[in-house]
Design a protein around this nucleic acid. Sequence first.
DNA 1: ATATGTGCAAATGGTTTGCAGTGAG
DNA 2: CTCACTGCAAACCATTTGCACATAT
Lengths: 150, 150
Amino acid sequence: MADSGERLQQLIKVVRGKGHRLTPQRLAMLKVIAKSEEHPSAEEIYDRIKADFPTTSLATIYKTLSLLKDMGEVLELSLAHVGCRYDGNKPYPHPHVICTGCGQILDPEFGAMAEIIREMAQQTGYQITHHQLNFFGLCPRCQQEGQAPD
Amino acid sequence: MADSGERLQQLIKVVRGKGHRLTPQRLAMLKVIAKSEEHPSAEEIYDRIKADFPTTSLATIYKTLSLLKDMGEVLELSLAHVGCRYDGNKPYPHPHVICTGCGQILDPEFGAMAEIIREMAQQTGYQITHHQLNFFGLCPRCQQEGQAPD
DNA sequence: ATATGTGCAAATGGTTTGCAGTGAG
DNA sequence: CTCACTGCAAACCATTTGCACATAT
């Protein structure tokens, strides 16, 4: 995978470039987000930040997350009844495969999206700006556990 | 489109068949749901029911919606920051095209889903049970209004 | 120096739950 | 006659907001 340090530098540059301040709390958040492969929730990000900044509040997490969303630097996955998950590593729409057993989320390879969007736009006349494509099911491990319970 | 009266009969049969009671409130809900083409929210369903049953409560709507979900007779679309929308007309996963301007939701034609699911399952080893595919953008009318404001 | 960011606490809003009373079967 | 359903109000819970204080620039 790509160098997450590089992604961090990019995030820092974007935040500063738009005239926003780089506080220690934000830097800590950017570090977490830059290398997040697991699509953490706001609360999970919060928990990791708390190690370094015990007084950090969830509200600040949400505020910075919102800022990054507006700048297009994080992707928000809103999963029903699971709350929102964030991806600052690949901040553009891409498919997800989500285990309904353990909650694991994968980013599968899927190249045909551009063409599908073109097709949908042509069929409906909509000007499509973004999309979400999520698959739900059991991951291999959860399938096994289902069949051969402890 | 198909006869919504037929769909209503089917819904009634399923509800009764599983040993659930068919109250007047439920019947009214089933009528609304059977012909819903517009993916109404719980509150919108509630508003329509209220005409006939002024004392109906939202809680009852949610309870019945939950019942129908469990029986696989309504599809719940959970759209971030818009709340849930319900489709009792086509209760199986299918793509949606959603206008970010006016909220209109279309059901486009899209035949390739089965193949894509097969591909994702093969790639990830997941046992995929359901999915969601949503496209967001401006509908033709909202595009016009954006260009030529009143 | 100054306005942006932080952190607390309170507000929000869609959804869920508890429970006493009601009515479908 | 009974138990599932209804309707009210209160509870939930993730997210948002208001505001006084702190601080990056």
